[in-house]
């Protein structure tokens, strides 16, 4: 019980820190918020007169001292109110709850695709002789370095526009999820594969592997049942980070494939210094990191029974 309470408190502290940091960074950036609102509403880029700015400043409280704005914001947070987006004129919670699911699906699909690819490649090529090993390892390094934007456009043009195997617009269908997930998943698979491969090769030299082989176990069985289990631990750790990174990096796949999602909203909100919306999304990403790391802890215990649940 005590650990659970501590974890929850820790999570709250992380969220509060994320919100505070984002609030002040946004507030400190140059560019007047009232000017941004007026200019964006009219497609203009001009200097606004005081007479024009005054009603906007009053409406959003931009004239208040920054600490007062902050206190106001945190007081709202304490009551579960994330505020209202200046630009989209809608409650932040409403915008987030509408946009979060497509991004979550994309993140999960990308992570799963990355794992499948990394595991398959490791099982097939690690310690299979110099050439397959080198090919597998080289391929991983290559894919890990692929820029998302470039990869996404290539996948779009080749598999959707030319070959027409997938819909061009990602949309919300399962089939439409494939290319965006691969866009994010292929480079990630490169990272996961590299750490898994290193570990895998080490494990295959361990005495218990030799003894398993001596018991007459087949090569696939050794790799699958024994070695892999040890080798995936670093990749699981990496996955905790990857979930957060995928979530906040989803914007590129969202733009290329015209998907709904948090990433797209975050980029425009940050451009327009929409403080409540940016802070809300940053808190959400922080929450995702916290949850992902909890899941990693759990996964460790499942994969490696030597780790006891201590409390």
């Amino acid at each position: 019980m005590k650990t659970v309470a501590l974890k929850v408190l820790g999570a709250i502290a992380v969220l509060w820190a994320a919100a505070t940091f984002t609030f002040f960074v946004q507030a400190a950036l140059p560019g007047d918020r009232a000017t941004l609102i007026l200019n964006q509403d009219s497609g203009q880029i001009i200097k606004r007169s005081d007479a024009e700015l005054a009603p906007v400043n009053e409406k959003f409280g931009f004239d208040d001292p920054i600490y007062a704005q902050y206190v106001n914001y945190v007081a709202g947070l304490a009551q579960g109110d994330l505020g209202t987006s200046y630009r989209l004129k809608a409650p932040v919670t409403e915008i987030i709850s509408e946009q979060i699911w497509p991004t979550i699906f994309l993140t999960i699909a990308a992570l799963v695709a990355a794992w499948i690819k990394a595991l398959a490649l490791t099982l097939l090529t690690a310690k299979r002789g110099r050439i397959p090993s080198a090919l597998g390892s080289g391929y991983e390094t290559f894919t890990a370095a692929l820029p998302h934007y470039w990869l996404g456009v290539i996948l779009l043009v080749v598999f959707a526009i030319e070959l027409q195997l997938f819909p061009v617009e990602g949309g919300s269908s399962l089939i439409g999820l494939v290319l965006p997930a691969l866009t994010l998943g292929i480079p990630l698979a490169g990272f996961l594969g590299q750490v898994t491969r290193d570990e895998f090769e080490k494990v295959l030299d361990q005495p218990f592997v030799t003894s398993a082989r001596a018991r007459g176990m087949g090569d696939f069985g050794v790799r699958w049942r024994h070695a892999l289990r040890h080798a995936v631990l670093p990749a699981i750790t990496l996955s905790g980070w990857a979930i957060g990174a995928l979530f906040s990096g989803a914007v590129i796949a969202e733009i290329i494939f015209a998907r709904q999602g948090i990433g797209n909203i975050l980029v425009t909100a940050a451009n327009m210094r929409d403080i409540p919306l940016v802070s809300g999304i940053v808190m959400l990403v922080a929450l995702i990191y916290v949850v992902a790391n909890l899941l990693v802890d759990l996964a460790y215990r499942v994969v490696d029974p030597r780790i006891e649940v201590s409390s």
Binding site: A113, F166, P167, A299, V302
Partner: peptide, 25 residues
């Protein structure tokens, strides 16, 4: 705490996703 022993079921679940390709219009 009891949880599934391996990641296999999860992997199998989403493998279907990658194979579900079909032709466009």
């Amino acid at each position: 705490m009891r949880t599934p022993k391996t990641l296999l079921p999860l992997l199998a679940l989403v493998a279907g996703l990658a194979l579900a390709a079909c032709g466009g219009s």
